[in-house]
Amino acid sequence: MTQSEPLPTESAPSEQSASSAHGLTTGAVARRLGVAPTTLRSWDRRYGIGPAAREDGRHRRWTPEDLAVLHEMCRLTSSGIPPAEAARAALAGPASAEAAPPAAPGPLPPPGRRPGSGNGLRLGAVRQECRGLGRAAVRLDAWAVDDLLGSVIAQYGLVTAWEEVMAPTLHAVGRKWETSGDRYVEVEHLLSWHVSSALRRAAGPPPVVSRSAAPPVLLACVPGEQHTLALEALAAGLAEVGLSTLMFGAAVPPEALDQAVRRTGPAAVVLWSQGRSTASPALARHVADTAWGVKGARARPAVVPAGPGWAGQPLAPGTVRPGGLREALTLLRGLCDAAAGAGTGPGSGSGRPGVRDQS
């Protein structure tokens, strides 16, 4: 089903016949665009983005021309342009957009000086794409969310898109939910699903041959941890540089993690913890002590505790906790290169420097 098709309800045929004769009602337009009816009324009242005709002088009826203006309004606000400015451009029509020369690709512009918001989200001084993503998510505009995520990744790269657009918007939605009772849960679920989908598209299929022939990087959330999006971003980033990964996702039981390490002989094991209640230094030490290989040249994985839950936790000497996605990618590339040079793996006869066990 495309965004422009009516929902398959019993009233759909009558809406179609009404649209052909009199135009669409505000409710029908809202369903088509994934926008709340109150948003359409607000745009009409504040910016004049409304139907050209009103049946009997009262009931709003939206024509195809009105819908074209609305589509442009949604597109512009989802790209981060403030609603008032977006309304002026949408009402001016495509001629004004064609007259302007296309912008050359380049780095993200600096964050705005004024605190921005996404329809009630407290975002602070952030990129305009972040504000646009917040607005689209609060409107439950799935098409705009998906389109914006894809364009940001394509234009600025995965790391910048995650650190400067996706993660700040997810945090803002989470804060809004926590401070609004049970409201905005649907916004968080919609945004999380589309972010996950965008990250998986960016990762693509697993590489047939690793760039360095290194053992894989094993990615797992610690037991009790359900937040996986940051780990999915790391998986996509590793795939982007040609490193193979094994993603085990949320709340991996200790026994399953132990078996996975012994069976695959990974170059590194990333243990993600979002909150202090799930971080387990004992589990990290156990994984770091898990060995494989022949006697006299057994190998052990490098353990990388990742996520805010590990802050302040007692970690083994020499353990590095990366501060963000970019730092984690640099660290793991180095570990994979070292593993490839040492030829480690379950069945190889040598261990990596620093993790070789002579027992």
Rank of each mutant, 00 (worst) to 15 (best):
A125C: 10
D146K: 13
V126Y: 01
R139S: 10
V138Y: 01
R131Y: 05
Y156C: 07
L140S: 12
G150W: 03
D146P: 08
R131C: 15
G124Q: 09
D147A: 11
S151A: 05
W143Q: 10
Q128K: 11
D147E: 14
G134N: 14
A142Y: 09
Y156N: 05
Y156S: 07
S151M: 10
L140M: 13
L133Q: 04
V138I: 13
L148S: 00
A144P: 14
L148C: 03
L148T: 00
V159D: 08
V145N: 05
R139C: 12
E129K: 00
A144I: 02
G132E: 09
Y156D: 03
D146G: 13
A154S: 07
A137G: 09
A125K: 11
W143L: 14
V159K: 07
E129L: 12
S151Y: 02
D146F: 09
A137V: 08
R135I: 15
D141N: 15
V126I: 13
R135A: 08
E129I: 12
D141V: 14
G157N: 03
R131E: 15
V145R: 02
Q128C: 12
Q155P: 01
A154I: 10
L158M: 11
L140F: 05
W143V: 09
V152F: 00
G150P: 13
V152T: 00
A142V: 15
E129N: 09
G124E: 09
R139G: 05
V159P: 13
R135V: 15
G150T: 04
L133G: 01
G157K: 00
S151Q: 10
S151N: 06
G132P: 14
G150F: 07
R127V: 10
G157L: 03
R127F: 07
A125Y: 02
L140E: 08
I153A: 03
A125E: 07
R139K: 13
A154D: 10
D146A: 11
V126F: 04
R127D: 08
A125W: 04
G124W: 02
A137K: 01
G132D: 11
V126H: 05
D147Q: 11
A142E: 15
V126E: 08
D147G: 08
L140I: 14
Y156P: 02
S151K: 06
A144Y: 02
V138D: 01
E129V: 08
V145P: 03
E129M: 10
W143P: 14
G134H: 11
I153G: 02
W143H: 09
D146L: 13
L158D: 05
A125M: 11
L133W: 05
Q128N: 12
G124Y: 03
